[in-house]
């Protein structure tokens, strides 16, 4: 859905789509490895350079939770990173101090990013899930005059 930087494994599966096991087949304790390979320097790598295993929730998607979605307008954005720091779902993709866009596989559509956006008009706005991003940007509001 979005073309922002990602590992090709991102959002492969709907949560809950995996094979279910019965109550008597569940093990008491389990270790899940987030990565396929050695994870010692993972803090020094970006998501696209990591080798996530199928156990990492990075490979899952919660896109179906959304009824409204945020749309990002590059033309107005000042790269303040407010949306990045407050996004509860790590869904604002930022590289080299620039916002690249929204990770629609992990976004739940809470709207926090729109609330914290300081530009006028806002560079992030909520639209219906069915509307395409191009159509949303075409109907972007113009600058609001300050109320006196």
């Amino acid at each position: 859905m979005s073309n922002v930087l990602s590992n090709k494994k991102r959002g492969m599966r709907e949560l809950g789509a995996e094979k279910k096991v019965g109550w008597d087949e569940v093990t008491h304790g389990v270790i899940l490895h987030s990565f396929e390979d050695d994870a010692t320097d993972v803090a020094k790598r970006k998501a696209e350079d990591r080798n996530y295993s199928d156990f990492s929730s990075y490979t899952a998607t919660v896109a179906s939770w959304r009824v409204i979605k945020p749309v990002y307008n590059r033309d107005i954005c000042i790269d303040c990173q407010n949306c990045w720091v407050w996004c509860p779902d790590s869904s604002i993709i930022s590289r080299d101090k620039q916002i690249l866009g929204i990770d629609y596989d992990h976004c739940k559509g809470c709207g926090v990013c729109v609330e914290v956006c300081p530009t006028n008009p806002k560079s992030l706005l909520m639209f219906g899930e069915a509307l395409s991003s191009e159509d949303a940007i075409a109907q972007w509001p113009v600058k609001e005059k300050k109320e006196k």
Binding site: A43, Y58, Q81, D89, K97, D105, H106, K108
Partner: peptide, 25 residues
């Protein structure tokens, strides 16, 4: 914030916290 944003994220999305939950922030 700009400098802070160059960090490498270590908490992944698609957890099941409510939309807008401050825990994950």
């Amino acid at each position: 914030l700009k400098e802070f944003s160059t960090t490498n994220e270590r908490f992944e999305g698609a957890h099941l916290l409510c939309p807008g939950c401050a825990h994950s922030m």
